[in-house]
């Protein structure tokens, strides 16, 4: 057994500490050690993007990172998009409203990828640009169209909410 190493990360605003084997992936760490199963594994090759989480606000493949590499960083998972009072994030609401999910397996990754995109582009570009932004996450159910619609709808809602929208940046 390889010696375990301590890891301290801030996940969804909470400081979490654990001892993990160096080879433990960030995805397994989140899912099993921190009991956050919303991060899903679709291929474990870094292709499907279904395990996408935000590390210091940047999307990363949780299957391609080791937990020890996340030491000292801040992570946002789908569980952290929900408001403390349990309300869905406007992106989640828009995905629901516009039927942007079917089986729901890629949905957490899609939401986080869209969240990152809207952080960088509060007013989204063309549909092609939105498609490019989510191009790293495979969805087998929807054909993507309603996801594009939902992201645009969420952006409208978020920008209408004022200059300081209900965005919980990872630093909050």
């Amino acid at each position: 057994m390889v010696e375990k190493r301590p890891v301290t990360v801030t996940v969804n605003g909470q400081v979490r500490q654990a001892e993990v084997e160096p080879r433990r992936t960030l995805a397994d760490f989140l899912r099993e050690d921190l009991n956050l199963p919303g991060t899903h594994l679709g291929c474990e090759h870094g292709v499907c993007g279904n395990c996408t989480v935000l590390l210091d606000g940047q999307s990363v493949r949780a299957c391609l990172m080791f937990a020890v590499q996340a030491d000292g960083h801040e992570i946002l998972t789908v569980e952290g998009l929900v408001a403390p009072n349990g309300d869905l994030h406007p992106l989640q609401e828009a995905f629901w409203e516009h039927h942007a999910l079917q089986c729901g397996f890629c949905t957490p990754a899609m939401l986080l990828t869209a969240y990152e995109y809207l952080q960088q582009h509060p007013v989204p570009g063309s549909d092609e640009e939105i498609r490019e932004a989510i191009g790293g996450v495979l969805c087998r159910c929807t054909g993507y169209q309603n996801i594009v619609t939902a992201i645009r709808a969420a952006a409208t809602k978020l920008t209408a909410a004022g200059p300081a929208p209900a965005s919980r940046s990872v630093a909050d």
């Binding site: 199963p37 919303g38 899903h40 569980e79 989640q92 629901w96 729901g104 397996f105």
Partner: peptide
């Protein structure tokens, strides 16, 4: 009608097979 299935999946609480321990 909006799908009644969706909230659990949107929250990352889908309880897929690999989520069950």
């Amino acid at each position: 009608m909006k799908r009644v299935e969706d909230p659990r999946f949107l929250r990352g609480k889908g309880r897929y097979i690999d989520d069950i321990r």
